[in-house]
Design a protein around this nucleic acid. Sequence first.
DNA 1: AATCGCGCCTGACGGC
DNA 2: TGCCGTCAGGCGCGAT
Length: 271
Amino acid sequence: MPELPEVETARRGIAPHLIDRTVQEVVIRQPRLRWPIPARLGKELPGQRITEVERRAKYLLIRLQQGTLILHLGMSGSLRLLPATTTAQIHDHFDLVLSDGCCLRLRDPRRFGAVLWTRKDPLRHALLRSLGPEPLDSAFNGECLYQWASKRHTAIKNLIMDQRVVVGVGNIYANEALFMAGIHPARSCRRIARKRYLRLTDAIKTVLTAAIEAGGTTLRDFRSADGKPGYFAQELQVYGKEGLACPACGNQLKTLRIGQRASVYCPRCQR
DNA sequence: AATCGCGCCTGACGGC
DNA sequence: TGCCGTCAGGCGCGAT
């Protein structure tokens, strides 16, 4: 599923093919995503030149001359660049057709994704304005996480998955980072020493950086018709590995449910 | 005010 | 074989 590393990989893959191109047409086959795709895109976008492709948290920001397209891939969304003549398949909900004959196509079987449009500063959009720091930014560090923890009463895994605290840490990477830092996912965020927060922020940065690098392999194949998965899956230590041996100590990995989400951890290594 | 848990969706998978 | 129930999960929002 698209976590922050995949969204960043997608951004890097599509940006060179979008920047300085002009939108020729917008195709909306299924407007019912998480929120309806605004019908006015069909009138407002054609003729506008794309100036920049950015990412904020898991949102892609495609900046045009007179506004910004805000994309979210939800659980199952993917983007491809195809010749505009390529026949759309099931779940291909949205196309941005460019004047050079290329087409950015959004496919999203579960439709948890979003395509939104704003003429204002997208960073002040209701969905983006309360987001916390980017995990790879220096503003996200052990001290800031420790400060957050001192104000909250929740499991550490909930804290690092809270978008106001830090963005882009989904379930997979929360599990991985907590394993790497040796912290039990259900531990109260109040009962973790300042020093361990430094270790945890380092782990989050390390695992996300490695995943972006692994996603970079997908980058090369990005234009192919069958978008291949990145290689980060084979680097996972605990996620989806309940019952298997801990890669560090050999103990059996266990699963807990925290906030409706599976949390896999090693009872010996993570305290 | 902070925290919890629901519900949106489809496809994969397991049990009978 | 085929049907049906369950699970997966980001994230806004309503309930507590």
